[in-house]
Design a binder for these strands. Structure first.
Lengths: 254, 254
DNA sequence: ACTGTGATTATGTATATACATATCAGAAAG
DNA sequence: CTTTCTGATATGTATATACATAATCACAGT
């Protein structure tokens, strides 16, 4: 390598003072990948080449490349180098908002109403709703609630809480505030599963939402676990035109 | 700290030879957080304390903690320490499958059918469908397709492709294979947005799917960008009972 | 031609060190 | 009593170095 390297050392190319060097290297490479300049299968420069290009140590380059590998944009093979992976895992990030936030984002006043609250021994159906996991036996709390946007019903909430996982819920009366936000502050959930589907409203739900029976609805069901143990199952039913779920994907690792 | 530290130095506690030290530290801490042992707000040990506990250098501890911070499980504040964050961003990962894979997962034979293919200058409606971005002007390809599971229609696909972004699509005839998989191999998409909602089937769609008009359907719309430029918009319409979207969340960083 | 074997190479992990930076506590000054 | 300054502290980033590990290549021997 010629001695023209000296000028690179004193100023790392198009330096941006706000971000760190490894972040800049990471962004540079990511940009070249997502722009298509480096297509899937392309062998990106070796660590020692980038070391020379940016005039920094191998550790700095390694930190950038390791993160890119972890985020799935590149694949690293010993002795061979690092390669651009094809965008394979079409995964998107789905943001689950609080219903109050959702309603207020529409500029409408939010109101919550408890329709029914039952404490009972877990039935087989209850156990199935809560999902697989140990110690599901015992008491559960079943709740039916209604969320309003202005004067109109916004969504029906049908929730089951495992009192084995959340004993504090037994003494709670969810008259004023919804169980969702309370639970989040209560239990450190470690896993969640969402199922989103469409269905025709059954008679009762339709009545609650002020719809004709059979009207299309969006149903979001969520199961939550805390340390492998089922915590809660909740089903939100929205009128078809009231709500949509948005999910985004960007290969960001910043 | 007493001098009993010596034994920790020689063998890093419950050593697992398969994983690296920083991974083990990361896992240890993550486990304590998701198990609830360290609740939100808890100040986790300082780097120099973990350094002593694991008998390793600060860089190793730092690598573990930095990753936990990046994955959002902890928050790091200079001079104050690192703190367990409350599980705030209820984000879930939504896996977008190929329709062929979905159908075959049901154990049914997959069949694809092209209903219509039109090439035209982009209208205002087309530009809105493709979403914001530069150089949307120009020609677009509009496709209507039907995906079958066995003998029954599984879903209707209504797609718009920007020929400015994918000029190769102009010469393609999507008679045998669906445009989705072809596009993935063609364009390195860098961002995607999904909107999932429920709606009543309109007359044409209902007919295609063999449903009564007004039957509830699940609609998934996806917009894709490649380097800020709109590539395609696609709307999949499924009969309510045929399909559901599943999204999972786990605070995994392995 | 085939096969093993060792050298080479790029990455993976870890260390000690250094300095920058944000922030907080308490001291000094007004 | 408030403001300002200063030092202490924990994290953030970067470096040079070292050795481990996996994969590949070249070469020697059967």
């Amino acid at each position: 390598m010629p001695d023209s390297m000296a000028e690179m050392v004193e100023e790392p190319v198009g330096g941006d003072a706000s971000t760190s060097l490894y972040q800049r290297i990471l962004n540079d490479i990511r940009d070249r990948i997502v722009s298509g300049e480096w297509e899937p299968g392309y062998r990106i420069p070796f660590e020692h080449e980038l070391t020379a290009e940016y005039g920094c140590s191998r550790m700095t380059v390694n930190k950038a490349l390791s993160q890119l590998a972890k985020s799935g944009l590149i694949e690293r093979r010993r002795r061979s180098g690092s390669f651009v992976r094809r965008p394979q895992s079409q995964a998107a990030v789905l943001e689950i908002h609080d219903i109050r936030i959702e309603v207020e984002a529409l500029g409408l006043p939010y109101r919550y109403e408890l329709m029914a609250q039952t404490k009972r021994r877990a039935t087989t159906v209850d156990r199935e709703r809560l999902g697989p996991g140990p110690s599901v036996a015992g008491q559960v709390l079943a709740l039916q609630c209604l969320h309003y946007a202005g004067v109109r019903p916004f969504c029906v909430e049908d929730r089951l809480i495992s009192l084995a996982a959340v004993p504090e819920a037994a003494d709670q009366e969810f008259l004023k505030s919804a169980p969702g936000p309370w639970l989040i502050g209560q239990v450190p959930w470690s896993a969640a599963e969402h199922v989103i589907r469409a269905a025709a409203a059954d008679g009762e739900t339709a009545a609650d939402l002020g719809l004709a029976s059979g009207a299309p609805c969006l149903i979001i069901e969520r199961r939550t676990w805390s340390a492998e143990r089922p915590v809660t199952h909740v089903r939100f039913t929205y009128p078809a035109n009231a709500h949509a779920v948005v999910a985004r994907f960007t290969p960001s690792d910043s």
